[in-house]
Design a protein around this nucleic acid. Structure first.
Lengths: 191, 191
DNA sequence: GCCGGATTTTGACGTACGTACGATCAACGC
DNA sequence: GCGTTGATCGTACGTACGTCAAAATCCGGC
Protein backbone atom coordinates (compact mmCIF):
# COMPACT_ATOMS: atom_id res chain seq x y z
CA UNK A 1 0.00 0.00 0.00
CA UNK A 2 1.47 3.28 -1.02
CA UNK A 3 1.99 6.10 1.40
CA UNK A 4 -0.42 8.12 -0.62
CA UNK A 5 -3.23 5.72 0.17
CA UNK A 6 -2.04 5.36 3.74
CA UNK A 7 -2.23 9.10 4.16
CA UNK A 8 -5.75 9.21 2.78
CA UNK A 9 -6.85 6.44 5.12
CA UNK A 10 -5.15 8.12 8.06
CA UNK A 11 -6.72 11.44 7.24
CA UNK A 12 -10.10 9.75 7.16
CA UNK A 13 -9.47 8.18 10.54
CA UNK A 14 -8.54 11.53 12.04
CA UNK A 15 -11.53 13.14 10.39
CA UNK A 16 -13.82 10.73 12.19
CA UNK A 17 -12.02 10.76 15.51
CA UNK A 18 -11.04 14.41 15.85
CA UNK A 19 -12.86 16.29 13.15
CA UNK A 20 -11.56 18.51 10.38
CA UNK A 21 -10.54 21.42 12.52
CA UNK A 22 -8.66 19.58 15.21
CA UNK A 23 -6.69 17.25 13.04
CA UNK A 24 -3.04 18.23 12.68
CA UNK A 25 -0.55 17.12 10.09
CA UNK A 26 1.25 15.14 12.77
CA UNK A 27 -1.97 13.37 13.70
CA UNK A 28 -2.35 12.19 10.14
CA UNK A 29 1.23 11.03 9.98
CA UNK A 30 0.79 9.05 13.20
CA UNK A 31 -2.53 7.54 12.13
CA UNK A 32 -1.28 6.53 8.72
CA UNK A 33 2.20 5.34 9.58
CA UNK A 34 3.50 7.59 6.87
CA UNK A 35 5.90 10.41 7.50
CA UNK A 36 5.01 13.98 8.16
CA UNK A 37 6.73 15.41 5.12
CA UNK A 38 5.02 12.96 2.78
CA UNK A 39 1.85 14.98 3.09
CA UNK A 40 3.45 17.84 1.25
CA UNK A 41 4.98 15.57 -1.34
CA UNK A 42 1.80 13.69 -2.22
CA UNK A 43 -0.87 16.31 -1.63
CA UNK A 44 0.87 19.66 -1.62
CA UNK A 45 -0.61 20.66 1.68
CA UNK A 46 -2.38 19.21 4.66
CA UNK A 47 -5.58 21.02 3.76
CA UNK A 48 -5.57 19.54 0.31
CA UNK A 49 -5.19 16.07 1.79
CA UNK A 50 -8.03 16.66 4.22
CA UNK A 51 -10.29 17.96 1.49
CA UNK A 52 -9.54 14.97 -0.68
CA UNK A 53 -10.34 12.71 2.24
CA UNK A 54 -13.70 14.29 3.10
CA UNK A 55 -14.85 14.23 -0.50
CA UNK A 56 -13.82 10.61 -0.82
CA UNK A 57 -15.89 9.78 2.24
CA UNK A 58 -18.95 11.59 0.96
CA UNK A 59 -18.68 9.81 -2.34
CA UNK A 60 -18.42 6.40 -0.65
CA UNK A 61 -21.45 7.07 1.47
CA UNK A 62 -23.38 7.93 -1.65
CA UNK A 63 -22.30 4.69 -3.28
CA UNK A 64 -23.29 2.70 -0.20
CA UNK A 65 -26.79 4.07 -0.06
CA UNK A 66 -27.27 3.65 -3.77
CA UNK A 67 -26.09 0.06 -3.77
CA UNK A 68 -28.38 -0.81 -0.91
CA UNK A 69 -31.50 0.55 -2.54
CA UNK A 70 -30.96 -0.42 -6.14
CA UNK A 71 -31.38 -4.06 -5.20
CA UNK A 72 -35.00 -3.42 -4.32
CA UNK A 73 -37.70 -5.18 -6.30
CA UNK A 74 -40.65 -3.19 -5.06
CA UNK A 75 -42.70 -1.67 -7.81
CA UNK A 76 -44.32 1.57 -6.72
CA UNK A 77 -42.58 4.59 -5.19
CA UNK A 78 -44.18 4.23 -1.74
CA UNK A 79 -42.87 0.72 -1.33
CA UNK A 80 -39.55 1.71 -2.76
CA UNK A 81 -39.41 4.49 -0.21
CA UNK A 82 -39.99 1.92 2.48
CA UNK A 83 -37.10 -0.14 1.19
CA UNK A 84 -34.95 2.97 1.05
CA UNK A 85 -35.70 3.88 4.63
CA UNK A 86 -35.10 0.36 5.82
CA UNK A 87 -31.75 0.08 4.15
CA UNK A 88 -30.84 3.55 5.34
CA UNK A 89 -31.81 2.59 8.85
CA UNK A 90 -29.74 -0.56 8.72
CA UNK A 91 -26.69 1.18 7.36
CA UNK A 92 -26.55 4.04 9.84
CA UNK A 93 -24.55 2.26 12.55
CA UNK A 94 -22.10 0.47 10.32
CA UNK A 95 -21.40 3.55 8.23
CA UNK A 96 -21.15 5.93 11.11
CA UNK A 97 -17.60 6.93 10.22
CA UNK A 98 -18.59 7.94 6.73
CA UNK A 99 -21.48 9.94 8.12
CA UNK A 100 -19.32 11.85 10.56
CA UNK A 101 -16.87 12.61 7.79
CA UNK A 102 -19.70 13.77 5.55
CA UNK A 103 -20.93 16.23 8.15
CA UNK A 104 -17.40 17.58 8.34
CA UNK A 105 -17.51 18.02 4.60
CA UNK A 106 -20.75 20.00 4.73
CA UNK A 107 -19.37 22.23 7.47
CA UNK A 108 -16.15 22.82 5.57
CA UNK A 109 -17.94 23.41 2.30
CA UNK A 110 -19.14 26.75 3.62
CA UNK A 111 -15.60 28.09 3.43
CA UNK A 112 -14.00 26.15 0.62
CA UNK A 113 -15.33 26.60 -2.86
CA UNK A 114 -13.67 23.43 -4.09
CA UNK A 115 -15.41 21.27 -1.53
CA UNK A 116 -18.67 23.09 -2.08
CA UNK A 117 -18.65 22.59 -5.83
CA UNK A 118 -17.80 18.94 -5.50
CA UNK A 119 -20.49 18.47 -2.90
CA UNK A 120 -23.06 20.29 -5.01
CA UNK A 121 -22.32 18.03 -7.93
CA UNK A 122 -22.70 15.02 -5.67
CA UNK A 123 -26.04 16.26 -4.39
CA UNK A 124 -27.38 16.76 -7.90
CA UNK A 125 -26.27 13.28 -8.85
CA UNK A 126 -27.68 11.85 -5.65
CA UNK A 127 -31.03 13.49 -6.21
CA UNK A 128 -31.24 12.18 -9.73
CA UNK A 129 -30.31 8.69 -8.64
CA UNK A 130 -32.71 8.69 -5.74
CA UNK A 131 -35.53 9.84 -7.99
CA UNK A 132 -34.61 7.15 -10.50
CA UNK A 133 -34.52 4.50 -7.83
CA UNK A 134 -37.87 5.49 -6.40
CA UNK A 135 -39.52 5.71 -9.79
CA UNK A 136 -37.73 2.59 -10.99
CA UNK A 137 -36.43 4.07 -14.22
CA UNK A 138 -33.00 4.80 -15.62
CA UNK A 139 -31.27 7.87 -14.10
CA UNK A 140 -30.97 9.53 -17.50
CA UNK A 141 -34.67 9.13 -18.15
CA UNK A 142 -35.95 10.89 -15.06
CA UNK A 143 -38.12 13.91 -15.64
CA UNK A 144 -36.30 17.06 -14.43
CA UNK A 145 -39.32 18.04 -12.37
CA UNK A 146 -39.16 14.68 -10.61
CA UNK A 147 -35.51 15.26 -9.80
CA UNK A 148 -36.33 18.61 -8.24
CA UNK A 149 -39.39 17.32 -6.41
CA UNK A 150 -39.12 13.68 -5.60
CA UNK A 151 -35.34 13.54 -5.72
CA UNK A 152 -34.90 16.56 -3.51
CA UNK A 153 -37.38 15.31 -0.97
CA UNK A 154 -35.74 11.92 -0.80
CA UNK A 155 -32.36 13.55 -0.43
CA UNK A 156 -33.67 15.77 2.34
CA UNK A 157 -34.96 12.72 4.12
CA UNK A 158 -31.65 11.00 3.98
CA UNK A 159 -29.59 13.95 5.16
CA UNK A 160 -32.09 14.84 7.87
CA UNK A 161 -32.21 11.29 9.08
CA UNK A 162 -28.44 11.09 9.17
CA UNK A 163 -28.07 14.30 11.15
CA UNK A 164 -30.70 13.19 13.60
CA UNK A 165 -28.98 9.83 14.00
CA UNK A 166 -25.60 11.37 14.64
CA UNK A 167 -26.80 13.77 17.30
CA UNK A 168 -29.53 11.82 19.03
CA UNK A 169 -29.72 8.22 17.85
CA UNK A 170 -32.01 7.12 20.66
CA UNK A 171 -34.81 9.37 19.50
CA UNK A 172 -34.64 8.20 15.90
CA UNK A 173 -38.08 7.22 14.65
CA UNK A 174 -38.74 3.80 13.21
CA UNK A 175 -39.45 3.40 9.53
CA UNK A 176 -43.14 2.87 10.21
CA UNK A 177 -43.37 5.96 12.36
CA UNK A 178 -41.62 7.94 9.66
CA UNK A 179 -43.95 6.81 6.92
CA UNK A 180 -47.02 7.34 9.05
CA UNK A 181 -45.73 10.84 9.78
CA UNK A 182 -45.43 11.49 6.06
CA UNK A 183 -48.97 10.34 5.46
CA UNK A 184 -50.37 13.00 7.71
CA UNK A 185 -48.70 15.66 5.63
CA UNK A 186 -50.30 14.70 2.36
CA UNK A 187 -53.92 15.15 1.41
CA UNK A 188 -55.31 11.63 1.55
CA UNK A 189 -57.60 11.89 -1.44
CA UNK A 190 -55.89 13.06 -4.58
CA UNK A 191 -58.47 13.44 -7.29
CA UNK B 1 -22.69 46.71 25.64
CA UNK B 2 -20.53 44.53 27.82
CA UNK B 3 -17.42 42.87 26.51
CA UNK B 4 -19.05 39.55 27.26
CA UNK B 5 -21.77 40.21 24.75
CA UNK B 6 -19.31 41.74 22.32
CA UNK B 7 -17.25 38.58 22.49
CA UNK B 8 -20.27 36.42 21.82
CA UNK B 9 -21.23 38.53 18.85
CA UNK B 10 -17.67 38.53 17.55
CA UNK B 11 -17.41 34.78 17.95
CA UNK B 12 -20.61 34.41 15.97
CA UNK B 13 -19.25 36.61 13.22
CA UNK B 14 -16.07 34.56 13.02
CA UNK B 15 -18.09 31.36 13.07
CA UNK B 16 -19.95 32.47 9.98
CA UNK B 17 -16.99 33.95 8.17
CA UNK B 18 -14.23 31.49 8.97
CA UNK B 19 -15.85 28.50 10.60
CA UNK B 20 -15.28 26.89 13.95
CA UNK B 21 -11.94 25.34 13.20
CA UNK B 22 -10.24 28.31 11.62
CA UNK B 23 -11.28 30.94 14.09
CA UNK B 24 -8.50 32.01 16.46
CA UNK B 25 -8.77 33.78 19.77
CA UNK B 26 -7.21 36.82 18.15
CA UNK B 27 -9.81 36.75 15.39
CA UNK B 28 -12.55 36.95 17.97
CA UNK B 29 -10.85 39.78 19.80
CA UNK B 30 -10.50 41.72 16.56
CA UNK B 31 -14.07 41.06 15.44
CA UNK B 32 -15.56 42.01 18.79
CA UNK B 33 -13.38 44.95 19.69
CA UNK B 34 -12.79 43.29 23.03
CA UNK B 35 -9.41 42.43 24.40
CA UNK B 36 -7.76 39.08 23.81
CA UNK B 37 -7.44 38.32 27.48
CA UNK B 38 -11.11 38.96 28.11
CA UNK B 39 -11.97 35.65 26.49
CA UNK B 40 -10.36 33.77 29.34
CA UNK B 41 -11.88 36.05 31.92
CA UNK B 42 -15.46 35.80 30.69
CA UNK B 43 -15.56 32.32 29.22
CA UNK B 44 -12.67 30.42 30.70
CA UNK B 45 -11.38 29.37 27.31
CA UNK B 46 -11.78 30.16 23.65
CA UNK B 47 -13.45 26.81 23.03
CA UNK B 48 -16.02 27.48 25.67
CA UNK B 49 -16.81 30.82 24.08
CA UNK B 50 -17.13 29.24 20.66
CA UNK B 51 -19.40 26.52 21.95
CA UNK B 52 -21.61 29.05 23.67
CA UNK B 53 -21.80 31.00 20.43
CA UNK B 54 -22.76 28.03 18.22
CA UNK B 55 -25.46 26.89 20.60
CA UNK B 56 -26.84 30.39 20.83
CA UNK B 57 -27.06 30.51 17.05
CA UNK B 58 -28.83 27.16 16.82
CA UNK B 59 -31.32 28.25 19.41
CA UNK B 60 -32.06 31.48 17.58
CA UNK B 61 -32.63 29.70 14.32
CA UNK B 62 -35.11 27.42 16.06
CA UNK B 63 -36.94 30.43 17.45
CA UNK B 64 -37.03 32.08 14.04
CA UNK B 65 -38.58 29.11 12.29
CA UNK B 66 -41.08 28.57 15.08
CA UNK B 67 -42.19 32.18 15.09
CA UNK B 68 -42.68 32.17 11.35
CA UNK B 69 -44.90 29.11 11.30
CA UNK B 70 -46.95 29.60 14.42
CA UNK B 71 -48.67 32.57 12.82
CA UNK B 72 -50.28 30.26 10.30
CA UNK B 73 -54.05 29.98 10.23
CA UNK B 74 -54.32 26.98 7.98
CA UNK B 75 -56.31 24.15 9.45
CA UNK B 76 -55.12 20.80 8.21
CA UNK B 77 -51.54 19.47 8.34
CA UNK B 78 -51.00 19.50 4.57
CA UNK B 79 -51.77 23.19 4.32
CA UNK B 80 -49.77 23.88 7.44
CA UNK B 81 -46.87 22.07 5.85
CA UNK B 82 -47.21 24.34 2.86
CA UNK B 83 -47.04 27.36 5.13
CA UNK B 84 -44.03 25.89 6.91
CA UNK B 85 -42.17 25.33 3.67
CA UNK B 86 -43.02 28.78 2.39
CA UNK B 87 -41.80 30.50 5.53
CA UNK B 88 -38.73 28.29 5.58
CA UNK B 89 -38.06 29.17 1.96
CA UNK B 90 -38.41 32.86 2.65
CA UNK B 91 -36.16 32.80 5.68
CA UNK B 92 -33.26 30.92 4.16
CA UNK B 93 -31.42 33.91 2.65
CA UNK B 94 -31.91 36.32 5.50
CA UNK B 95 -30.90 33.79 8.13
CA UNK B 96 -27.97 32.43 6.24
CA UNK B 97 -25.54 33.29 9.02
CA UNK B 98 -27.49 31.35 11.58
CA UNK B 99 -27.64 28.40 9.23
CA UNK B 100 -23.91 28.35 8.65
CA UNK B 101 -23.33 28.54 12.37
CA UNK B 102 -25.78 25.72 12.93
CA UNK B 103 -23.95 23.46 10.53
CA UNK B 104 -20.78 24.21 12.45
CA UNK B 105 -22.61 23.17 15.59
CA UNK B 106 -23.63 19.84 14.09
CA UNK B 107 -20.11 19.17 12.93
CA UNK B 108 -18.63 20.06 16.29
CA UNK B 109 -21.24 18.07 18.19
CA UNK B 110 -19.61 14.87 17.00
CA UNK B 111 -16.65 15.57 19.24
CA UNK B 112 -18.05 17.57 22.11
CA UNK B 113 -20.54 15.92 24.38
CA UNK B 114 -21.75 19.23 25.76
CA UNK B 115 -22.71 20.54 22.35
CA UNK B 116 -24.21 17.21 21.39
CA UNK B 117 -26.43 17.03 24.46
CA UNK B 118 -27.62 20.57 24.01
CA UNK B 119 -28.28 19.97 20.35
CA UNK B 120 -30.16 16.75 21.07
CA UNK B 121 -32.39 18.55 23.53
CA UNK B 122 -33.04 21.23 20.94
CA UNK B 123 -33.95 18.64 18.32
CA UNK B 124 -36.42 16.93 20.63
CA UNK B 125 -38.02 20.25 21.43
CA UNK B 126 -38.03 21.21 17.78
CA UNK B 127 -39.71 18.00 16.76
CA UNK B 128 -42.38 18.39 19.36
CA UNK B 129 -43.05 21.95 18.37
CA UNK B 130 -43.12 21.18 14.69
CA UNK B 131 -45.57 18.36 15.27
CA UNK B 132 -47.71 20.64 17.40
CA UNK B 133 -47.63 23.36 14.78
CA UNK B 134 -48.60 21.01 11.98
CA UNK B 135 -51.37 19.38 13.97
CA UNK B 136 -52.46 22.72 15.38
CA UNK B 137 -52.51 21.62 19.03
CA UNK B 138 -50.57 22.59 22.14
CA UNK B 139 -47.02 21.19 22.27
CA UNK B 140 -47.71 19.40 25.54
CA UNK B 141 -50.72 17.67 24.08
CA UNK B 142 -49.02 16.07 21.12
CA UNK B 143 -49.17 12.32 20.94
CA UNK B 144 -45.65 10.87 21.42
CA UNK B 145 -46.06 8.81 18.27
CA UNK B 146 -46.82 11.98 16.34
CA UNK B 147 -43.65 13.56 17.67
CA UNK B 148 -41.61 10.59 16.50
CA UNK B 149 -43.35 10.36 13.17
CA UNK B 150 -44.68 13.68 12.01
CA UNK B 151 -42.29 15.75 14.10
CA UNK B 152 -39.24 13.85 12.98
CA UNK B 153 -40.21 14.01 9.35
CA UNK B 154 -40.84 17.71 9.51
CA UNK B 155 -37.51 18.22 11.23
CA UNK B 156 -35.76 16.13 8.59
CA UNK B 157 -37.31 18.29 5.95
CA UNK B 158 -36.06 21.45 7.51
CA UNK B 159 -32.52 20.27 8.08
CA UNK B 160 -32.29 18.65 4.68
CA UNK B 161 -33.61 21.76 3.01
CA UNK B 162 -31.14 23.92 4.89
CA UNK B 163 -28.16 21.78 3.96
CA UNK B 164 -29.21 21.73 0.36
CA UNK B 165 -29.63 25.49 0.37
CA UNK B 166 -26.21 26.11 1.85
CA UNK B 167 -24.36 23.92 -0.59
CA UNK B 168 -26.31 24.38 -3.80
CA UNK B 169 -28.96 27.08 -3.49
CA UNK B 170 -29.59 27.27 -7.23
CA UNK B 171 -30.88 23.73 -7.37
CA UNK B 172 -33.28 24.20 -4.47
CA UNK B 173 -36.75 23.00 -5.40
CA UNK B 174 -39.74 25.25 -5.11
CA UNK B 175 -42.36 24.60 -2.47
CA UNK B 176 -44.74 23.21 -5.06
CA UNK B 177 -42.13 20.86 -6.46
CA UNK B 178 -41.34 19.67 -2.96
CA UNK B 179 -44.94 18.94 -2.09
CA UNK B 180 -45.57 17.24 -5.40
CA UNK B 181 -42.49 15.10 -4.72
CA UNK B 182 -43.91 14.10 -1.39
CA UNK B 183 -47.18 13.09 -2.95
CA UNK B 184 -45.54 10.50 -5.12
CA UNK B 185 -44.11 8.84 -2.06
CA UNK B 186 -47.42 8.26 -0.36
CA UNK B 187 -50.11 5.84 -1.47
CA UNK B 188 -52.76 8.10 -2.96
CA UNK B 189 -55.78 6.23 -1.70
CA UNK B 190 -55.64 5.55 1.97
CA UNK B 191 -58.73 3.57 2.91
C1' DG C 1 25.74 -3.29 -11.17
C1' DC C 2 24.93 1.21 -11.64
C1' DC C 3 22.23 5.20 -13.06
C1' DG C 4 18.24 8.45 -12.57
C1' DG C 5 13.88 9.58 -11.34
C1' DA C 6 10.50 8.85 -7.82
C1' DT C 7 9.77 8.44 -3.13
C1' DT C 8 10.78 8.60 1.80
C1' DT C 9 13.13 10.50 5.78
C1' DT C 10 15.44 13.88 8.52
C1' DG C 11 15.56 17.91 10.78
C1' DA C 12 14.55 22.32 11.49
C1' DC C 13 12.69 27.05 10.61
C1' DG C 14 9.52 30.65 11.26
C1' DT C 15 5.21 31.55 12.90
C1' DA C 16 0.90 31.74 15.22
C1' DC C 17 -1.49 29.66 18.69
C1' DG C 18 -4.09 29.59 23.54
C1' DT C 19 -3.45 30.92 27.97
C1' DA C 20 -1.60 32.78 32.16
C1' DC C 21 0.01 36.64 35.05
C1' DG C 22 0.31 41.04 36.86
C1' DA C 23 -0.74 45.83 36.18
C1' DT C 24 -4.28 49.17 35.51
C1' DC C 25 -8.73 51.04 35.85
C1' DA C 26 -13.62 52.36 37.20
C1' DA C 27 -17.15 52.08 40.52
C1' DC C 28 -18.73 52.08 45.03
C1' DG C 29 -19.65 51.34 50.01
C1' DC C 30 -18.01 53.06 54.17
C1' DG D 1 -10.15 59.26 51.26
C1' DC D 2 -9.39 54.56 50.81
C1' DG D 3 -9.64 49.79 50.17
C1' DT D 4 -12.24 46.27 47.78
C1' DT D 5 -14.11 44.15 43.88
C1' DG D 6 -14.92 43.17 39.06
C1' DA D 7 -13.39 44.22 34.57
C1' DT D 8 -9.97 45.40 31.07
C1' DC D 9 -5.46 45.60 29.30
C1' DG D 10 -0.41 44.65 27.94
C1' DT D 11 2.56 41.20 27.41
C1' DA D 12 5.09 37.21 27.15
C1' DC D 13 5.67 32.27 27.80
C1' DG D 14 5.76 27.68 26.09
C1' DT D 15 4.21 24.94 22.66
C1' DA D 16 2.58 22.98 18.51
C1' DC D 17 1.71 24.16 14.04
C1' DG D 18 2.50 23.62 8.58
C1' DT D 19 6.01 23.64 5.42
C1' DC D 20 10.34 23.07 3.18
C1' DA D 21 15.14 21.95 1.60
C1' DA D 22 18.19 18.57 1.43
C1' DA D 23 19.81 14.15 2.37
C1' DA D 24 18.85 9.26 2.12
C1' DT D 25 16.67 5.42 0.06
C1' DC D 26 14.34 2.76 -3.20
C1' DC D 27 13.74 0.55 -7.69
C1' DG D 28 13.02 -0.36 -12.59
C1' DG D 29 15.68 -0.06 -17.06
C1' DC D 30 19.78 -0.96 -19.20
Amino acid sequence: MSQREDLLAGARTCLVEKGYGRTTARDIAAASGAHLASIGYHFGSKDNLMNTAVLEAVSEWGDAIEAAVSASRAEDPPNRLRVLLHSLFRQLPEQRGLLVASVQAYAQAQFDEGIRDDLARGIREGRRELAALLLNVEPDRVDPAAVAGLGSMAYNFVTGYVLQYLVDPEALPTVDQAIEGLRVLIPAARE
